[in-house]
Measured scan of single mutants.
Amino acid sequence: RELEAFAERFKQRRIKLGVTQADVGSALANLKIPGVGSLSQSTICRFESLTLSHNNMIALKPILQAWLEEAEGAQREKMNKP
C-alpha cells in the first residue's frame, strides 16, 4: 500500500514540477548516490504505473524520494529568490 501511495504521490509531484520521466532518469546520476547512475524513462514509467517487480520498487523508492526532495528544494529556492 505504501509503495502504491508513494508512486502516485511521486508522479503528481513530478508533473507539478514540470519534469519529464526522462529528465528524472538522467537527473538521478547527479545525486551521486553510490551504485546509482541514470535510469531509463521506461523504468520511471514502470515505477509510476506499478509494473516493476516489488523488489525493484522497494529498491527505487529511496532513490526517487531523494531526487524528489532535492528537486522540490531547488524549486523552493528558485521561488524565494527576488
Rank of each mutant, 00 (worst) to 15 (best):
N80M: 12
S40Q: 08
L31S: 08
A74S: 12
Q75C: 11
G37Q: 07
A27P: 00
G25D: 14
L31Q: 10
A74Y: 12
T43C: 07
L50C: 15
N56C: 15
P82W: 07
K11G: 02
A74T: 11
Q65P: 00
V24F: 03
S40P: 06
G25R: 07
K61D: 01
E48V: 00
T43P: 02
L68E: 01
S38V: 14
D23W: 03
S53C: 12
A74D: 10
F6N: 01
I58R: 15
W67C: 00
R76T: 12
S49V: 01
I44E: 01
G25K: 13
K32V: 11
G73K: 09
L60V: 10
E48F: 00
I33Y: 05
I58T: 14
I15P: 00
N80P: 15
A22W: 10
F6P: 00
E8N: 15
K81D: 10
L28Y: 02
Q12V: 07
G25M: 11
L17F: 04
M79T: 11
I63T: 14
G35Y: 01
S42V: 11
I15D: 05
E8T: 08
G25C: 13
I58C: 07
L31R: 12
R14A: 00
A5W: 05
L17P: 00
E77R: 10
I33S: 04
E8M: 08
E70F: 05
N56E: 14
A5K: 14
E48T: 00
S26N: 15
K61T: 06
K11V: 06
A66G: 10
K81V: 09
L28W: 02
W67G: 01
N55M: 11
A27H: 08
E4R: 08
A66R: 11
L31P: 04
R13K: 09
E4S: 08
N56D: 11
W67M: 02
S53H: 15
L68A: 02
A5M: 13
A27L: 04
E8L: 13
S53E: 12
A66F: 07
Q12Y: 06
P34E: 13
K78Y: 07
G37C: 09
E77D: 12
L3A: 06
R14I: 00
N55K: 10
P34T: 11
E77M: 13
A5F: 14
I33V: 14
F6E: 03
Q75I: 09
N56R: 09
F6M: 03
Q75A: 12
E72V: 03
R9C: 12
Q41C: 10
T51W: 02
S38F: 15
Q21D: 05
M57W: 04
V19S: 09
K81S: 11
T43Q: 07
K16A: 15
W67E: 01
L50M: 14
A27V: 06
M57H: 03
A22Q: 15
E2D: 13
E70M: 07
L3V: 09
T43Y: 04
P82V: 09
L3E: 04
S38H: 14
Q21T: 08
E4M: 14
E48Y: 00
D23C: 05
R13L: 06
L68M: 07
E8R: 12
S26L: 11
L52C: 03
A22G: 11
S42L: 07
K16E: 15
S49E: 14
A74I: 12
A71R: 09
E2R: 04
V19E: 03
A5T: 08
Q65W: 06
H54Y: 14
L17N: 02
E77Q: 11
E4G: 06
S49M: 07
M79L: 12
R9L: 15
I33W: 07
L39W: 05
F10V: 01
L52V: 02
T43K: 04
A22R: 07
E2S: 06
R13M: 10
V24S: 01
